[in-house]
Design a binder for these strands. Structure first.
Lengths: 161, 161
DNA sequence: CCTTGCTCCTGTAGTCGCTACAGGATGCAA
DNA sequence: TTGCATCCTGTAGCGACTACAGGAGCAAGG
C-alpha cells in the first residue's frame, strides 16, 4: 500500500485552487454561495478542501466566463457536461444563441466606433468656434447624428485616430 | 394678460419629459438623486416642473449614454459643455479614451466570435463521440484553446454559420 | 511558549446603471 | 363623486463580482 485510499494527494486549499485556476478566492466563495461550485468538505479547523474534480469544474466555469457565457448559461452547460447530460444539440443551441448576442454587440460597438472616430477626427481638423464632440452630443436626435456623421466623407485625420 | 412673465409656456411634467427624451421616468428621478440632472422646482402639490434647459441636459445625457459613455464621464462632459467650460481638448481626450475602450471591446468580442463560430461549426460537422463545445470548455488552458481553434483550417460548415 | 505573519473564515456593503415594486397622494374629467 | 392616470418617496433587486471588517487557524522562528 504505497497509497492509502483516504490519503488524497490532490487536496487543495482555496488559495491554491485560486492560483491554479486564476479565479479569485472571493469569487470561488461566491460561486459556492450561489451554487455554481459544489461546497467542498472542510478541514478540522473549518477550511475548505478541494480536489481535482472541483478544479476541473472551476476551470470549465472560468473558460466559459472568458467566452462571455452568463453564469446561468454555464449552470446549464455544466448539467449537460455531466455524463448522461443529454444531447450535444442543446449545448450547441446555447453556444449559438450566445454567438448571436456576441455578433449583435460587435455590430453595435462598430457603429459607436464609427461615430466616435469621425467626430473626434472633426475635432482634430480644428473647427475653432465649437467642439465637434459636444455639438454631436447636443443635437436633438441621436439617429440623425448617426446619419449625418456616417454620410460625411472621411478626412485625413480619420486614419490617424 | 395674454402672457404674464411667470407663466412659462415650456413647463414640462416628468412624464412629458420622459416622452420627449425617451428616458424612463424612474431613470429621470434616479439621475436627480445621483445629481446628474439638477433638481427642478416643484408644483404646489410637490410635482417636478421641468423646463427646456432640463430637456436639453437630459437629451445630452441620453445621447452620451447611447454612445456608451459612463455617467461619470458624462458628468465631466456636462461641466465642459457649460459656457466657459474650458477646452475642447479635454472633451476630445475623454472621447478618445472612450473610443479606445470601444475598440478594445470590439477586438475582444471578435476573438470570442472566432472561437465560438469555429467550435460550433465543428459541432455541425458532427463528431459523434463528443461535443466540440464542451471539449473546448474542458481543455485545461483557454489560451491554448484560442491557439488550437485559430490554427484549424476552416471547414465548409464555417461559412454557413 | 510566544510572537509574527500568512492564510483562511463569515458576513455585509459597495460597484454600475438602472428597473421594479409598495403604498400612498395629486389632479383632472365624466 | 368616482374613477383613473399620473405623480410621489423609499426600498430592494439585477449580474458578477469586489472590498472590506473583524476575527480564527496554523506553521516557523526566537
Amino acid at each position: 500500500m504505497a497509497a492509502v485510499p483516504d490519503a488524497r494527494s490532490e487536496d487543495i486549499s482555496i488559495g491554491e485552487l485560486s492560483r491554479l485556476t486564476g479565479v479569485h478566492v472571493e469569487t470561488i466563495r461566491y460561486y459556492e454561495k450561489i451554487e455554481m461550485l459544489p461546497a467542498p468538505p472542510r478541514s478540522h479547523g473549518g477550511r475548505r478542501i478541494y480536489d481535482a474534480g472541483h478544479r476541473r469544474t472551476l476551470a470549465f466555469i472560468r473558460h466559459a466566463r472568458e467566452l462571455g457565457f452568463t453564469l446561468d448559461e454555464i449552470r446549464t452547460l455544466l448539467g449537460l457536461a455531466r455524463p448522461g447530460g443529454t444531447s450535444c444539440a442543446q449545448v450547441r443551441d446555447i453556444a449559438a444563441a450566445h454567438l448571436g448576442s456576441v455578433r449583435d454587440k460587435i455590430a453595435n460597438l462598430m457603429r459607436l466606433e464609427a461615430i466616435l472616430s469621425r467626430t473626434i477626427a472633426q475635432c482634430a481638423d480644428g473647427a475653432p468656434t465649437s467642439c465637434a464632440v459636444l455639438d454631436m452630443l447636443e443635437t436633438p436626435d441621436a439617429a440623425s447624428v448617426v446619419r449625418r456623421v456616417m454620410s460625411k466623407k472621411p478626412s485625413r485625420a480619420d486614419r490617424k485616430i
